[in-house]
């Protein structure tokens, strides 16, 4: 029993970092020490490889259309366009961001789990007893979710950066991957991954229920794609052109508007509008999550 008191470990200096830094490290430990994070990473790698393969085949048939098709002449014209410098750059940008449009779902769902697993496993009480400053705890989670999003992006981009030059070489076309078009796409996707990770975290902090939050996250993402048909119908009724730009208020559409170099759909607003809207949703959810977490009882 005396061992309790004679603690060699306690006599040593602990982590001397400030509370936010300590908490961020603790959040990383939480992610590393359960299978969930690793499962997500493995799933994401497999998904990215699959997306690269599908994208590669698609681009191949675009460059080398099958002969003897009914629309052969049109296909050849498209192939010629695809082989132009601009076409190759677009193709390279698309290859470099393979699967990322759907890949952000991994960041979104992991963001949800970072906070809801605390409530599902009743560890929230332990966490808040250890550090009663709840806003600081949630901010550490926000940062951890952002880093997880960035990590997914990094993995995806590295895989694509290996595969894309090999693909272009095999197709006997070449373009610079350092060109602004490609770089812009890649960087905007980083922003997308980070935003979706934090979006999921905010959503989880607001809803707390693990199953509920996961369904809500998928619902928000998938439901966004219903925005275009919906507003298109609305336009048929009211004939206002701004209605055709309105789908951008759906988070996933905003994300698409942000990362797409051209217009994401007819009458789409410029990319920065999408960025502002997605960021706005994310910040609002985080603010609501922090306010609610501070107010609510932990039981």
């Amino acid at each position: 029993m005396t061992a309790l008191l004679d603690s060699a470990a306690l006599d040593q200096a602990g982590d001397t970092g400030t509370t936010p830094v300590r908490l961020l490290r603790a959040e990383f430990m939480k992610i590393r020490t359960t299978s969930t994070g690793w499962l997500f990473l493995t799933g994401f790698i497999m998904f990215t490889v699959l997306a690269l393969t599908i994208n590669g085949f698609g681009s191949h048939y675009q460059l080398h259309p099958q002969q003897g098709l009914a629309s052969g002449a049109q296909a050849l014209a498209q192939a010629a366009q695809a082989r132009s410098p601009a076409g190759v750059a677009t193709m390279a940008a698309s290859m470099m961001t393979s699967g990322q449009r759907i890949g952000v779902l991994f960041a979104l769902l992991l963001g949800v789990l970072i906070v809801t697993s605390e409530f599902a496993n009743q560890t929230a009480a332990v966490t808040f007893v250890t550090v009663p400053r709840r806003a600081t705890v949630i901010m550490a989670k926000v940062y951890a979710a952002a880093c997880c999003g960035a990590l997914f992006w990094l993995v995806s981009t590295v895989l694509a950066a290996v595969a894309t030059p090999l693909f272009l070489y095999s197709q006997h076309v070449s373009t610079s991957l350092a060109g602004w078009d490609v770089t812009r796409s890649v960087l905007l996707n980083l922003l997308g991954f980070v935003a979706w990770g934090v979006f999921g975290l905010g959503l989880g902090a607001v809803l707390r229920s693990q199953t509920g939050s996961l369904f809500a996250a998928i619902g928000v993402y998938a439901g966004s794609f219903g925005a275009e048909p919906f507003f298109s119908e609305l336009h048929n009724l009211f004939h206002q052109y701004w209605i055709l730009a309105a789908p951008v208020i759906a988070p996933a559409v905003a994300s698409e508007v942000m990362v797409t170099s051209g217009p994401a759909f007819p009458y789409a607003p410029p990319g920065w509008v999408g960025g502002v809207i997605l960021t706005g949703y994310t910040l609002a959810l985080v603010a609501a999550g922090i306010a609610l977490t501070k107010r609510r009882d932990v039981i």
Partner: peptide, 27 residues
């Protein structure tokens, strides 16, 4: 000591405690 169910199901006991240490700045 709160409810006996208060650790993540997939986490080892050791990791559970190390996370508390890390959060609190204890070695």
């Amino acid at each position: 000591v709160l409810e006996a169910g208060a650790a993540h199901q997939d986490r080892t006991g050791r990791d559970h405690l190390r996370i508390v240490c890390q959060s609190a700045g204890i070695p």
